[in-house]
Design a protein around this nucleic acid. Sequence first.
DNA 1: AATACGTGGGA
DNA 2: TTCCCAAGTAT
Length: 360
Amino acid sequence: MTATDNRIAHEEIAPRLLEWYDSHARALPWRIPPGGERPDPYRTWLSEVMLQQTTVAAVKPYFKKFTRVWPDVDALAAASDADIMAAWAGLGYYSRARNLVACARQVSAMGGFPETETELRRLPGVGDYTAAAIAAIAFRQRAVVVDANVERVVARLFAIGEPLPGARKAIRSATHTITPSHQSGDFAQAMMDLGATICTPRDPRCLLCPLADACKARASGEATRYPVKPAKKSVPERRGTAFWIEREGPGSLRQVWLVERSAAVMLGGMRALPDDGWTARADGSGEPPVSADWEKAGAVRHGFTHAKLTLDLLRTKLNEASAVSGKGEWWDVDALEDAGLPTLFAKAALLALAADDDET
DNA sequence: AATACGTGGGA
DNA sequence: TTCCCAAGTAT
Protein backbone atom coordinates (compact mmCIF):
# COMPACT_ATOMS: atom_id res chain seq x y z
CA MET A 1 0.00 0.00 0.00
CA THR A 2 1.38 3.40 -0.95
CA ALA A 3 1.43 6.48 1.26
CA THR A 4 -1.21 8.09 -0.94
CA ASP A 5 -3.60 5.14 -0.65
CA ASN A 6 -3.13 5.25 3.09
CA ARG A 7 -4.06 8.92 3.43
CA ILE A 8 -7.18 8.54 1.32
CA ALA A 9 -8.22 5.55 3.38
CA HIS A 10 -8.02 7.62 6.59
CA GLU A 11 -10.49 10.14 5.28
CA GLU A 12 -12.90 7.45 4.23
CA ILE A 13 -12.93 5.66 7.54
CA ALA A 14 -15.28 7.96 9.48
CA PRO A 15 -17.93 8.25 6.71
CA ARG A 16 -17.95 4.51 6.19
CA LEU A 17 -18.19 3.79 9.88
CA LEU A 18 -20.98 6.34 10.39
CA GLU A 19 -22.93 4.87 7.50
CA TRP A 20 -22.61 1.44 9.08
CA TYR A 21 -23.70 2.88 12.43
CA ASP A 22 -26.89 4.27 10.88
CA SER A 23 -28.22 0.76 10.46
CA HIS A 24 -26.26 -1.19 13.09
CA ALA A 25 -26.25 0.98 16.22
CA ARG A 26 -27.25 -0.99 19.28
CA ALA A 27 -30.41 0.17 21.02
CA LEU A 28 -29.31 0.99 24.57
CA PRO A 29 -31.29 2.66 27.37
CA TRP A 30 -28.89 5.62 27.61
CA ARG A 31 -28.64 6.11 23.89
CA ILE A 32 -30.88 8.04 21.61
CA PRO A 33 -31.05 7.25 17.88
CA PRO A 34 -28.20 8.70 15.76
CA GLY A 35 -29.04 12.17 14.49
CA GLY A 36 -31.61 12.61 17.23
CA GLU A 37 -31.89 15.20 19.94
CA ARG A 38 -28.92 16.03 22.13
CA PRO A 39 -28.56 13.46 24.92
CA ASP A 40 -29.03 14.41 28.56
CA PRO A 41 -25.53 14.98 30.05
CA TYR A 42 -26.67 13.41 33.33
CA ARG A 43 -27.65 10.17 31.62
CA THR A 44 -24.51 10.22 29.50
CA TRP A 45 -22.30 10.71 32.56
CA LEU A 46 -24.13 8.10 34.63
CA SER A 47 -23.96 5.48 31.88
CA GLU A 48 -20.29 6.17 31.15
CA VAL A 49 -19.30 5.79 34.79
CA MET A 50 -21.30 2.58 35.12
CA LEU A 51 -19.75 1.23 31.93
CA GLN A 52 -16.18 1.67 33.14
CA GLN A 53 -14.73 -1.86 32.97
CA THR A 54 -18.26 -3.22 33.08
CA THR A 55 -20.35 -5.01 30.46
CA VAL A 56 -23.40 -3.45 28.83
CA ALA A 57 -25.55 -6.34 30.03
CA ALA A 58 -24.54 -5.78 33.66
CA VAL A 59 -25.12 -2.02 33.46
CA LYS A 60 -28.60 -1.99 31.92
CA PRO A 61 -30.67 -2.83 35.03
CA TYR A 62 -28.59 -0.52 37.24
CA PHE A 63 -28.95 2.37 34.81
CA LYS A 64 -32.71 1.89 34.69
CA LYS A 65 -32.99 1.72 38.47
CA PHE A 66 -30.81 4.79 39.06
CA THR A 67 -32.63 6.94 36.49
CA ARG A 68 -36.02 5.85 37.86
CA VAL A 69 -35.13 6.68 41.47
CA TRP A 70 -32.91 9.68 40.69
CA PRO A 71 -34.05 11.19 37.35
CA ASP A 72 -31.57 14.08 37.38
CA VAL A 73 -28.29 15.12 38.94
CA ASP A 74 -29.98 17.25 41.62
CA ALA A 75 -32.00 14.27 42.80
CA LEU A 76 -28.88 12.14 42.96
CA ALA A 77 -26.99 14.88 44.79
CA ALA A 78 -29.74 15.01 47.41
CA ALA A 79 -29.70 11.26 48.08
CA SER A 80 -27.87 9.77 51.05
CA ASP A 81 -24.49 8.10 50.61
CA ALA A 82 -25.90 4.87 52.05
CA ASP A 83 -28.80 4.72 49.59
CA ILE A 84 -26.51 5.27 46.61
CA MET A 85 -23.92 2.74 47.77
CA ALA A 86 -26.68 0.18 48.37
CA ALA A 87 -28.12 0.81 44.91
CA TRP A 88 -24.67 0.25 43.41
CA ALA A 89 -24.18 -3.05 45.26
CA GLY A 90 -23.28 -5.89 42.89
CA LEU A 91 -21.96 -3.67 40.11
CA GLY A 92 -18.40 -3.67 41.42
CA TYR A 93 -15.55 -1.15 41.60
CA TYR A 94 -17.20 0.68 44.48
CA SER A 95 -14.90 3.68 44.36
CA ARG A 96 -17.00 4.60 41.33
CA ALA A 97 -20.05 4.92 43.56
CA ARG A 98 -18.17 7.00 46.11
CA ASN A 99 -16.95 9.28 43.32
CA LEU A 100 -20.42 9.35 41.78
CA VAL A 101 -21.88 10.89 44.93
CA ALA A 102 -19.09 13.45 45.18
CA CYS A 103 -19.40 14.31 41.50
CA ALA A 104 -23.19 14.68 41.60
CA ARG A 105 -23.00 17.08 44.54
CA GLN A 106 -20.27 19.10 42.87
CA VAL A 107 -22.17 19.34 39.59
CA SER A 108 -25.44 20.14 41.33
CA ALA A 109 -23.75 22.96 43.26
CA MET A 110 -22.25 24.26 39.99
CA GLY A 111 -25.72 24.40 38.48
CA GLY A 112 -25.03 21.72 35.87
CA PHE A 113 -22.34 19.81 34.04
CA PRO A 114 -19.42 21.77 32.58
CA GLU A 115 -19.36 21.49 28.80
CA THR A 116 -15.69 21.22 27.96
CA GLU A 117 -13.49 18.15 28.08
CA THR A 118 -10.94 19.96 30.26
CA GLU A 119 -13.48 20.93 32.92
CA LEU A 120 -15.20 17.57 32.84
CA ARG A 121 -11.83 15.91 33.42
CA ARG A 122 -11.56 17.63 36.81
CA LEU A 123 -14.68 15.95 38.20
CA PRO A 124 -14.21 13.02 40.59
CA GLY A 125 -14.37 9.66 38.82
CA VAL A 126 -14.08 11.29 35.39
CA GLY A 127 -10.84 10.33 33.67
CA ASP A 128 -9.51 10.87 30.15
CA TYR A 129 -11.93 8.47 28.53
CA THR A 130 -15.09 9.59 30.33
CA ALA A 131 -14.37 13.30 29.89
CA ALA A 132 -13.90 12.83 26.15
CA ALA A 133 -16.98 10.64 25.86
CA ILE A 134 -19.26 13.12 27.65
CA ALA A 135 -17.90 16.08 25.69
CA ALA A 136 -18.38 14.27 22.37
CA ILE A 137 -21.69 12.52 23.04
CA ALA A 138 -23.59 14.98 25.24
CA PHE A 139 -22.08 18.28 24.11
CA ARG A 140 -21.33 17.52 20.46
CA GLN A 141 -17.72 18.59 20.72
CA ARG A 142 -14.82 17.07 18.89
CA ALA A 143 -13.01 14.81 21.31
CA VAL A 144 -10.74 11.84 20.82
CA VAL A 145 -12.43 8.99 22.65
CA VAL A 146 -10.27 5.96 23.39
CA ASP A 147 -11.57 3.00 25.32
CA ALA A 148 -10.62 -0.68 25.09
CA ASN A 149 -12.83 -1.16 22.01
CA VAL A 150 -11.25 1.75 20.19
CA GLU A 151 -7.83 0.50 21.24
CA ARG A 152 -8.51 -2.86 19.67
CA VAL A 153 -10.08 -1.51 16.47
CA VAL A 154 -7.35 1.06 15.92
CA ALA A 155 -4.49 -1.30 16.80
CA ARG A 156 -5.85 -3.66 14.12
CA LEU A 157 -6.68 -0.97 11.57
CA PHE A 158 -3.10 0.33 11.70
CA ALA A 159 -1.41 -2.94 12.71
CA ILE A 160 0.21 -1.32 15.73
CA GLY A 161 2.50 -4.06 16.98
CA GLU A 162 3.92 -2.38 20.08
CA PRO A 163 2.60 -4.03 23.25
CA LEU A 164 0.18 -2.26 25.58
CA PRO A 165 0.36 -0.11 27.55
CA GLY A 166 3.26 1.43 25.61
CA ALA A 167 1.15 1.44 22.43
CA ARG A 168 -1.40 3.83 23.92
CA LYS A 169 0.36 6.93 22.61
CA ALA A 170 0.46 5.63 19.03
CA ILE A 171 -3.14 4.40 19.30
CA ARG A 172 -4.34 7.75 20.54
CA SER A 173 -2.49 9.55 17.77
CA ALA A 174 -3.95 7.23 15.13
CA THR A 175 -7.45 7.68 16.60
CA HIS A 176 -6.95 11.43 16.34
CA THR A 177 -6.27 11.14 12.61
CA ILE A 178 -9.53 9.31 11.90
CA THR A 179 -11.85 11.19 14.29
CA PRO A 180 -14.14 13.59 12.36
CA SER A 181 -14.61 17.19 13.49
CA HIS A 182 -18.37 16.79 13.47
CA GLN A 183 -20.29 13.80 14.87
CA SER A 184 -17.31 12.70 16.92
CA GLY A 185 -19.80 11.42 19.52
CA ASP A 186 -21.52 9.17 16.98
CA PHE A 187 -18.10 8.20 15.66
CA ALA A 188 -16.96 7.15 19.13
CA GLN A 189 -20.09 5.14 19.78
CA ALA A 190 -19.83 3.56 16.34
CA MET A 191 -16.24 2.51 17.08
CA MET A 192 -17.37 0.98 20.36
CA ASP A 193 -20.25 -0.87 18.73
CA LEU A 194 -17.92 -2.12 16.02
CA GLY A 195 -15.50 -3.35 18.67
CA ALA A 196 -18.27 -4.99 20.66
CA THR A 197 -20.05 -6.74 17.81
CA ILE A 198 -17.63 -7.11 14.85
CA CYS A 199 -14.03 -6.40 15.80
CA THR A 200 -14.22 -8.64 18.88
CA PRO A 201 -11.19 -9.85 20.86
CA ARG A 202 -11.66 -13.44 19.64
CA ASP A 203 -12.98 -14.49 16.23
CA PRO A 204 -13.57 -11.06 14.73
CA ARG A 205 -16.23 -11.03 12.02
CA CYS A 206 -14.08 -9.35 9.40
CA LEU A 207 -16.45 -10.36 6.58
CA LEU A 208 -19.08 -8.05 8.06
CA CYS A 209 -16.72 -5.19 8.88
CA PRO A 210 -17.25 -1.89 7.04
CA LEU A 211 -13.55 -1.11 7.50
CA ALA A 212 -12.14 -4.46 6.40
CA ASP A 213 -10.51 -3.20 3.23
CA ALA A 214 -8.72 -0.43 5.13
CA CYS A 215 -7.53 -2.75 7.89
CA LYS A 216 -3.83 -3.62 7.94
CA ALA A 217 -4.29 -6.44 10.44
CA ARG A 218 -6.93 -7.95 8.21
CA ALA A 219 -4.56 -7.67 5.24
CA SER A 220 -1.90 -9.51 7.21
CA GLY A 221 -4.39 -12.27 8.00
CA GLU A 222 -3.69 -11.94 11.72
CA ALA A 223 -6.32 -9.63 13.10
CA THR A 224 -6.32 -11.26 16.53
CA ARG A 225 -2.63 -10.58 16.94
CA TYR A 226 -3.53 -6.96 17.78
CA PRO A 227 -3.42 -5.29 20.19
CA VAL A 228 -0.40 -7.02 21.73
CA LYS A 229 -0.96 -7.44 25.44
CA PRO A 230 1.53 -8.04 28.22
CA ALA A 231 1.50 -11.40 29.99
CA LYS A 232 -0.82 -11.40 32.98
CA LYS A 233 0.34 -12.11 36.46
CA SER A 234 -0.94 -14.95 38.56
CA VAL A 235 -3.36 -13.98 41.31
CA PRO A 236 -2.69 -15.07 44.90
CA GLU A 237 -4.99 -17.28 46.97
CA ARG A 238 -6.29 -15.71 50.16
CA ARG A 239 -8.34 -16.93 53.07
CA GLY A 240 -10.57 -15.01 55.43
CA THR A 241 -13.52 -15.42 57.77
CA ALA A 242 -16.86 -13.64 57.92
CA PHE A 243 -19.20 -13.73 60.90
CA TRP A 244 -22.97 -14.15 60.88
CA ILE A 245 -24.19 -12.77 64.19
CA GLU A 246 -27.90 -13.16 64.74
CA ARG A 247 -30.26 -12.07 67.49
CA GLU A 248 -33.95 -12.07 68.15
CA GLY A 249 -34.72 -8.39 68.02
CA PRO A 250 -37.77 -6.36 69.05
CA GLY A 251 -41.02 -8.12 68.19
CA SER A 252 -39.21 -11.45 67.72
CA LEU A 253 -37.69 -10.19 64.49
CA ARG A 254 -34.62 -12.07 63.30
CA GLN A 255 -31.78 -9.61 62.91
CA VAL A 256 -28.18 -9.86 61.75
CA TRP A 257 -25.26 -7.59 62.64
CA LEU A 258 -23.96 -5.58 59.67
CA VAL A 259 -21.03 -3.19 59.57
CA GLU A 260 -20.00 -0.44 57.18
CA ARG A 261 -16.60 -1.03 55.60
CA SER A 262 -14.14 1.83 55.65
CA ALA A 263 -13.60 3.67 52.37
CA ALA A 264 -9.91 2.71 52.41
CA VAL A 265 -10.33 -1.05 52.00
CA MET A 266 -11.67 -3.36 49.32
CA LEU A 267 -15.46 -3.07 48.95
CA GLY A 268 -14.99 0.22 50.80
CA GLY A 269 -18.03 2.15 51.92
CA MET A 270 -20.31 -0.87 51.57
CA ARG A 271 -22.43 -2.63 54.17
CA ALA A 272 -21.05 -6.05 54.97
CA LEU A 273 -20.86 -8.89 57.43
CA PRO A 274 -18.10 -8.32 59.98
CA ASP A 275 -14.91 -10.14 59.04
CA ASP A 276 -11.39 -10.86 60.27
CA GLY A 277 -9.55 -8.21 58.25
CA TRP A 278 -8.51 -10.28 55.21
CA THR A 279 -7.10 -8.27 52.30
CA ALA A 280 -5.87 -9.02 48.79
CA ARG A 281 -2.36 -9.03 50.25
CA ALA A 282 -2.86 -11.08 53.40
CA ASP A 283 -5.09 -13.69 55.00
CA GLY A 284 -7.41 -12.69 57.80
CA SER A 285 -6.64 -13.24 61.49
CA GLY A 286 -9.55 -15.63 62.03
CA GLU A 287 -10.43 -13.62 65.14
CA PRO A 288 -14.18 -13.07 65.72
CA PRO A 289 -15.49 -9.63 66.76
CA VAL A 290 -17.18 -11.06 69.87
CA SER A 291 -16.54 -13.97 72.14
CA ALA A 292 -19.32 -16.47 71.47
CA ASP A 293 -20.13 -20.05 70.63
CA TRP A 294 -19.27 -20.18 66.93
CA GLU A 295 -20.60 -22.75 64.52
CA LYS A 296 -19.10 -23.45 61.09
CA ALA A 297 -21.46 -22.67 58.23
CA GLY A 298 -19.25 -23.48 55.25
CA ALA A 299 -17.24 -21.26 52.90
CA VAL A 300 -17.69 -19.23 49.73
CA ARG A 301 -15.20 -18.80 46.90
CA HIS A 302 -14.91 -15.44 45.23
CA GLY A 303 -12.62 -14.14 42.52
CA PHE A 304 -11.35 -10.58 42.46
CA THR A 305 -9.16 -9.00 39.82
CA HIS A 306 -6.01 -9.44 41.88
CA ALA A 307 -6.80 -12.19 44.40
CA LYS A 308 -8.90 -15.30 44.88
CA LEU A 309 -10.59 -15.58 48.21
CA THR A 310 -11.96 -18.44 50.23
CA LEU A 311 -14.20 -16.90 52.86
CA ASP A 312 -15.11 -19.16 55.76
CA LEU A 313 -18.37 -18.40 57.46
CA LEU A 314 -18.97 -18.71 61.21
CA ARG A 315 -22.38 -18.31 62.83
CA THR A 316 -23.61 -17.53 66.30
CA LYS A 317 -26.78 -16.41 67.99
CA LEU A 318 -26.70 -13.81 70.73
CA ASN A 319 -29.36 -13.20 73.34
CA GLU A 320 -30.91 -9.78 73.20
CA ALA A 321 -28.90 -8.34 76.06
CA SER A 322 -25.58 -9.02 74.37
CA ALA A 323 -23.85 -6.23 72.55
CA VAL A 324 -21.37 -6.28 69.69
CA SER A 325 -18.57 -3.78 70.02
CA GLY A 326 -17.69 -1.49 67.14
CA LYS A 327 -19.81 0.40 64.65
CA GLY A 328 -22.65 -1.43 63.00
CA GLU A 329 -26.37 -2.00 62.96
CA TRP A 330 -28.91 -4.76 63.47
CA TRP A 331 -30.61 -5.51 60.17
CA ASP A 332 -33.85 -7.44 59.70
CA VAL A 333 -33.02 -10.73 58.03
CA ASP A 334 -36.24 -10.55 56.03
CA ALA A 335 -35.05 -7.28 54.47
CA LEU A 336 -31.47 -8.36 53.81
CA GLU A 337 -31.80 -7.73 50.08
CA ASP A 338 -32.26 -4.04 50.83
CA ALA A 339 -28.95 -3.87 52.71
CA GLY A 340 -26.96 -3.60 49.49
CA LEU A 341 -24.33 -6.19 50.27
CA PRO A 342 -21.57 -6.56 47.67
CA THR A 343 -21.64 -9.92 45.93
CA LEU A 344 -19.04 -11.58 48.17
CA PHE A 345 -21.12 -10.95 51.30
CA ALA A 346 -24.41 -11.64 49.53
CA LYS A 347 -23.03 -15.10 48.78
CA ALA A 348 -22.02 -15.55 52.43
CA ALA A 349 -25.46 -14.44 53.64
CA LEU A 350 -27.09 -16.94 51.30
CA LEU A 351 -24.90 -19.64 52.79
CA ALA A 352 -25.89 -18.68 56.34
CA LEU A 353 -29.56 -18.83 55.46
CA ALA A 354 -29.15 -22.12 53.60
CA ALA A 355 -27.58 -23.61 56.73
CA ASP A 356 -30.85 -22.71 58.54
CA ASP A 357 -32.88 -24.71 56.06
CA ASP A 358 -30.66 -27.73 56.66
CA GLU A 359 -31.40 -27.63 60.38
CA THR A 360 -35.15 -27.57 60.01
C1' DA B 1 4.81 3.41 35.59
C1' DA B 2 2.74 -0.01 37.99
C1' DT B 3 -0.72 -1.48 40.91
C1' DA B 4 -5.31 -1.65 43.23
C1' DC B 5 -9.85 -2.09 42.45
C1' DG B 6 -15.52 -6.30 41.34
C1' DT B 7 -18.28 -8.90 38.89
C1' DG B 8 -20.52 -12.04 35.59
C1' DG B 9 -20.61 -14.25 31.21
C1' DG B 10 -18.52 -16.71 27.43
C1' DA B 11 -15.25 -20.09 25.56
C1' DT C 1 -12.56 -25.36 36.01
C1' DT C 2 -10.01 -21.75 34.58
C1' DC C 3 -9.00 -17.95 31.93
C1' DC C 4 -10.19 -13.86 29.52
C1' DC C 5 -12.18 -9.65 29.38
C1' DA C 6 -15.69 -5.42 29.66
C1' DA C 7 -17.46 2.19 27.51
C1' DG C 8 -11.13 3.07 33.32
C1' DT C 9 -9.71 5.92 37.36
C1' DA C 10 -6.85 7.08 41.19
C1' DT C 11 -2.61 7.03 43.26
